[in-house]
């Protein structure tokens, strides 16, 4: 998929410049400087210009990806795929590279080697100004929420819509709708500092979902939260997946999160979370399960490589000691 070049046209193509090109050398010089790859700033491109889901192609594909820092390589030869509708849970100890992997997929960090293809784009080849447009089609929930602390909850959720010059009335209704979705509509005018950790995560999820992106990254959304609040966050992720058809990657060190996502789904008719049938298929009569909602798979990272990749039930039946340590933590 070819990304539309972003930037202003060459001087010769500008209306009225051909006959007056020689009269305005300064303008032409400025445009040449502007069009320089390193200097060219971002400019929002119409959504239609950017590809999102390419039929027959995984939404995310990592091939032999490496990244390291002064201390050595953190991720070595990572390869995996995420298909539309799938929920990929990244399990691993602290420092195993879960966040790095998601930041590379979102183009927030550059890999040292390997190929990363996301929503039809070769992320590692895109310059920052193209990545800015690309990221408007995905959501990212940061570990601590990363809410803008000088803005209210409503302003935080409205941020992306404001950037896209959505009319005020529509911004207001969409912000209310999204905050209702995460059950935070009462906190519209509060500042992030006035919210609890769990509330901040919920607002952060609302900010990521406000524009209905097809792909959302959740970076340790339950880290440091009590079990009840963690369950609320997982329910929100289930709602996003099952009601909006969001494909997602979720980094966590809690195996409970992985099993919660694999074994439960959100039933819109009952307005609650219900257990999946044993074979993972949709029970008869449950018509509200989103048609794009796919399987939940687990990917365990250890020592910079993929230690395990498969379904939650496969992991349950493992005889591997390291995986059993993870499973034991859930008991």
């Amino acid at each position: 998929m070819v990304v539309q070049p972003i930037g202003i046209d060459p001087p010769g193509d500008l209306p009225g410049t051909q006959e007056s090109a020689q009269k305005r050398p300064l303008r032409i010089a400025l445009i040449s400087i502007y069009n320089h790859r390193m200097l060219r700033p971002s400019r929002p491109a119409p959504i239609s210009e950017m590809s999102t889901i390419v039929p027959g192609e995984p939404l995310i594909a990592f091939k032999d990806v490496h990244i390291g820092f002064d201390e050595g390589e953190v991720l070595r030869g990572i390869s995996f795929e995420v298909w539309p509708g799938e929920t990929k849970v990244l399990l691993g100890e602290s420092g195993s590279g879960k966040t790095l992997l998601m930041k590379m997929a979102a183009g927030l960090m550059r890999a040292d080697a390997g190929r990363i293809r996301v929503m039809g784009h070769n992320v590692e080849e895109m310059p920052e100004h193209e990545l800015l447009d690309f990221r408007r089609h995905l959501g990212f929930v940061f570990q601590e929420g990363a809410l803008f602390d000088s803005m209210t909850v409503a302003e935080n959720v409205a941020f992306r819509l404001r950037e896209e010059n959505v009319p005020d009335a529509e911004v207001h209704s969409r912000v209310l709708e999204t905050l209702h979705f995460v059950e935070m509509e009462s906190a519209l005018d509060k500042y992030p500092a006035e919210l609890s950790g769990g509330m901040r995560r919920r607002v952060s999820i609302a900010r990521a979902l406000v524009d209905r992106p097809p792909l959302v990254f959740y970076d340790s959304p339950t880290a440091g939260l009590d079990p009840v609040t963690s369950q609320t966050i997982i329910t929100l992720i289930l709602r996003g997946r099952d009601l909006q058809g969001v494909t997602s990657m979720l980094a966590t060190h809690r195996v409970q999160d992985a099993f919660g996502l694999a074994r439960f789904r959100f039933d819109q008719a009952a307005d609650r979370v219900v257990r999946e049938s044993n074979n993972g298929e949709q029970p008869a009569g449950q018509q509200n399960h989103h048609e794009d909602s796919g399987p939940t798979n687990i990917l365990v990272l250890r020592d910079g490589t993929i230690y395990f990749e498969g379904a939650a039930e496969e992991m349950l039946q493992t005889s591997d000691d390291y995986l059993k340590t993870f499973l034991a933590s859930a008991e």
């Binding site: 995905l138 940061f142 990363a146 941020f159 950037e163």
Partner: peptide, 14 residues
């Protein structure tokens, strides 16, 4: 340090 700048980039703003 609170990842707000990264959050801004993730939301598509320079």
């Amino acid at each position: 340090v609170t990842e707000q700048v990264d959050a801004m980039r993730a939301l598509g703003t320079d």
